[in-house]
Design a protein around this nucleic acid. Structure first.
Length: 417
DNA sequence: AAGTTTGTACGCGCTGAAGA
DNA sequence: TCTTCAGCGCGTACAAACTT
């Protein structure tokens, strides 16, 4: 009779004569305990074609090994064929048997389906297992160099790593290997975190650099613009000081930026008209002259000639009103109120849109500069400045009054006709 | 709470310059 | 000389803020 056994130490399975199982004399093919650990004589070389010789004949060549009996059969070939054809489920060994056998190896996952072929497969399996472990290690090494985007779980990594092995022989992978895999996976995750942090840092630095570059570009363009304005101002001042006509300026600064057509026209007019400004009025340093316009500040420009006329205007009221017209124009003023508050004289009056507070402050500033030339008394200055809104309000009323008068005249004319 | 002051919008009338 | 019109001052109405 033959027994199909599994050696616990290396999981190798093959058929051998029952005579090689110590203290085992089965009376039938079912007369064995598949959960019990038997002591089996095993040849280290394990020749392929061992006979049913008695243990005594092998003498000292045979060694005792712990094994589990999975099946019994009268004929060795029948046994191997039946094992080849059907899957044999390996039953769990009872604890007592393990203790009895002195085994401490964890075979908790014993409920594994095994496929077995020939007896030689046992040794091949053993070799295969070792090869599989090598393959796992190789995979691990390969994984270390792989993309960091691999976020598979340790279990998945483990399954993947042992896939080839399972396909080969479904062998059990030792816990130590699993733990090694797990450590490796955790290490990879840690590295990935570090690299992601590094990436984030680099990205932030890049954004900051881009911002700085943008600011630098804006500063460069602003500097160019200022340089351009400065050159033009120099040209205008040279003309004002009577240092010669525009031609001379061009001779002096042939490389200077070409003035715009409008500027050129102004220059030529000024050069040909010596009495263009019969009574030159000093323009305060803060007001920039350019292209026949005066910059009052914050991008507000007024006609230069009108500005000079304004400077000789008598009285704060007239000065403020004229300046308001220069800045806003009568068409705008007639449809606005100073502060945007509706009149209280009429109920349900619709408020008119207010004048720009920014422009109002420019008007106040201009008036302040004018008053400051007359007096240093801050109280007087403040008192006179407080009337700016009133003056502008009056101007708006005056404009509306003249408009209404015009309408009345039109209506009267129409009635007469 | 009542009175006062301040700010805003508006109307009206006076004044002086410009034109017919 | 008369008319027109812009500029100006003053008064009124109202609301909000401030003071008593």
């Amino acid at each position: 009779m033959y027994a199909f056994v599994r050696f616990l130490e290396d999981n190798v399975c093959y058929a051998l004569p029952v005579s090689r199982v110590r203290d085992f004399s089965p009376t039938s093919q079912q007369d064995f305990d598949n959960q019990k650990v038997y002591t089996v004589y095993r040849n280290p070389e394990e020749a392929a074609d061992e006979d049913d010789e008695s243990p005594g004949e092998w003498g000292d060549r045979l060694l005792l090994h712990k094994a589990q009996i999975l099946a019994l059969a009268e004929d060795k070939t029948d046994l191997e064929n039946s094992v080849m054809q059907k899957k044999i489920k390996i039953p769990k060994l009872s604890l007592n048997h393990i203790e009895e056998a002195g085994e401490v190896t964890d075979y908790g996952e014993e409920d594994v389906e095994l496929r077995h072929s020939k007896r030689q497969d046992g040794r091949k399996q053993s070799e295969g297992t070792h090869k599989s472990i090598e393959a796992v290690v190789a995979r691990l090494e390969k994984q270390n160099g792989m993309s960091l985007s691999n976020t598979s779980s340790p279990e998945e990594a483990f399954m993947e790593a042992t896939e080839g092995m399972n396909n080969m022989d479904d062998a059990v992978v030792p816990r130590i290997l699993y733990e090694e895999l797990l450590r490796s996976y955790q290490q990879q995750q840690e590295e990935m975190r570090h690299i992601q942090q590094e990436l984030e840092r680099t990205r932030r630095q890049l954004v900051q650099q881009a911002k700085k570059l943008k600011e630098y570009g804006a500063l460069v363009s602003e500097m160019k613009e200022l340089r351009d304005l400065n050159r033009r101002l120099q040209d205008v001042l040279l003309l004002r000081l009577g240092s010669g006509p525009a031609i001379e300026v061009e001779k002096v600064k042939p490389e200077s930026i070409e003035p715009e057509p409008e500027v050129q026209k102004t220059f030529s007019e000024e050069a040909n008209t010596s009495t263009y400004y019969p009574a030159p009025v000093p323009v305060m340093d803060k007001y920039i002259l350019e292209n026949g316009k005066v910059h009052l500040g914050s991008g507000i420009w007024v006609d230069e000639e009108k500005w000079h006329q304004l400077q000789v205007t008598q009285g704060d009221s007239k000065y403020t009103k004229n300046l308001a017209v220069m800045i806003w124009g009568t068409d705008v003023l007639k449809n606005r109120s100073v502060t945007g508050v509706a009149t209280k004289k009429k109920k349900d009056a619709v408020p008119k849109p207010p004048l720009s507070p920014h422009k109002l402050s420019i008007v106040r500033e201009c008036l302040y500069d004018r008053i400051a030339q007359e007096t240093v008394d801050e109280t007087e200055i403040a008192q006179r400045l407080s009337k700016v809104n009133k003056y502008i309000c009056e101007k708006i009323m005056d404009i509306n009054k003249s408009c209404k008068n015009e309408e009345r005249r039109e209506i009267a004319k129409y009635n007469l006709q």
